[in-house]
Amino acid sequence: MTTFKLIINGKTLKGEITIEAVDAAEAEKIFKQYANDNGIDGEWTYDDATKTFTVTE
Rank of each mutant, 00 (worst) to 15 (best):
M1H: 13
T2R: 08
T2K: 07
T2A: 15
T2F: 08
T2D: 10
T2G: 06
T3K: 14
T3C: 01
T3L: 08
T3G: 03
F4V: 03
K5M: 04
L6A: 07
L6W: 10
L6V: 03
L6E: 00
L6S: 09
I7A: 04
I7Y: 09
I7E: 02
I8K: 02
I8M: 15
I8H: 05
N9E: 09
N9D: 03
N9C: 03
N9A: 04
K11F: 13
K11S: 07
T12E: 13
L13C: 01
L13K: 02
L13H: 08
K14T: 12
K14C: 01
G15P: 15
G15D: 10
E16G: 02
E16W: 07
E16P: 03
I17R: 07
I17T: 04
I17N: 13
I17S: 03
T18C: 02
T18S: 06
T18R: 12
T18W: 10
I19G: 12
I19V: 05
I19F: 05
I19Q: 02
E20T: 15
E20K: 06
E20P: 09
E20F: 08
E20H: 08
E20A: 09
A21N: 14
A21V: 15
A21P: 01
A21H: 10
V22E: 13
V22T: 07
D23H: 12
D23I: 12
D23R: 12
A24F: 09
A24C: 02
A24P: 14
A24W: 15
A25G: 04
A25W: 05
E26I: 13
A27G: 11
A27N: 00
E28F: 12
E28H: 06
E28C: 02
K29T: 05
K29S: 12
I30G: 09
I30T: 11
I30L: 04
F31E: 00
F31M: 04
K32W: 13
K32A: 08
K32F: 07
K32L: 04
Q33T: 13
Q33N: 07
Q33E: 15
Y34S: 09
Y34F: 15
Y34V: 06
Y34E: 04
Y34I: 03
A35H: 01
N36W: 14
D37C: 01
N38P: 01
D41H: 01
D41N: 07
G42N: 00
G42A: 01
E43H: 09
E43G: 09
E43W: 02
W44S: 03
W44V: 06
W44I: 04
W44L: 07
T45L: 05
T45G: 04
Y46C: 01
Y46I: 07
Y46W: 05
Y46D: 03
D47A: 09
D47Y: 12
D47M: 11
D47C: 03
D47N: 11
D48I: 04
D48M: 10
A49D: 07
A49V: 07
A49I: 10
T50I: 05
T50H: 11
T50W: 13
T50R: 06
T50L: 14
T52F: 12
T52Y: 12
F53R: 00
F53Y: 14
F53E: 00
T54C: 02
T54D: 14
T54P: 00
T54R: 10
T54Y: 03
V55T: 06
V55Q: 04
V55L: 02
T56E: 13
T56M: 06
T56I: 04
T56G: 04
E57P: 01
E57Y: 10
